[in-house]
């Protein structure tokens, strides 16, 4: 009687030697595409919730101002402050800040600059209105009040 046993020659395991390469590729992809935040935010940031959110098509035109109570209360007090880049500024310094932000943009885009106000919910309107007046003087009149999507409606 002849043997008809089929000869099994294939390997049973999935080759895993290329797995690290695949994962490293993923890792590098995420490292390259995600943008690290350059500034440490030193004020409290609890965003308000809203429904009518809009985005800006050109993200490069956005500059950020952070407003809220300082995180280090013992050092800076608990009155809300304005943070631009890495420093606290007064409302009077907003014009200078806007001009330096405009200088970073291409000349054709300078008037289209959009200021994103990241304001803590507990901040008072008085300070924000002062900032708005200075922004009007600085001719940066497109404003985005940063907010999160409201979940329940």
């Amino acid at each position: 009687m002849s043997k008809f046993k089929k000869k099994v020659n294939t390997k049973q395991e999935i080759p895993t030697s290329s797995m690290p390469d695949v994962v490293f590729m993923l890792l590098f992809f995420f490292m390259v595409t995600t943008k690290m935040r350059e500034t440490n935010i030193n004020v409290e940031q609890h965003m308000p919730q809203a429904t009518q959110l809009r985005t800006l098509a050109k993200k490069s035109l956005i500059s950020y101002l952070y407003i809220g109570s300082p995180k280090k209360i013992d050092q800076f007090g608990k009155e809300p402050k304005i943070q631009a880049n890495d420093v606290f500024i007064e409302p009077k310094g907003v014009i200078q800040w806007v001009n330096s932000e405009k200088a970073k943009l291409d000349e054709v885009d300078r008037d289209a600059i959009t200021i994103s106000l990241k304001v803590d919910v507990e901040s008072k309107r008085g300070l924000i209105a002062d900032v708005e007046t200075e922004l009007r003087r600085a001719n940066a009149r497109k404003l985005l009040y940063s907010a999160n999507q409201k979940i329940d409606r």
């Binding site: 890792l27 994103s116 001719n139 940063s146």
Partner: peptide, 23 residues
């Protein structure tokens, strides 16, 4: 990979847009 995924925050540029009046 998981470390980077968890520590990076996706910047959200969403909000209510208004146009301020002239100074």
């Amino acid at each position: 990979l998981t470390f980077f995924l968890m520590t990076t925050t996706v910047a959200s540029d969403k909000g209510l847009m208004i146009q301020l009046p002239p100074p």
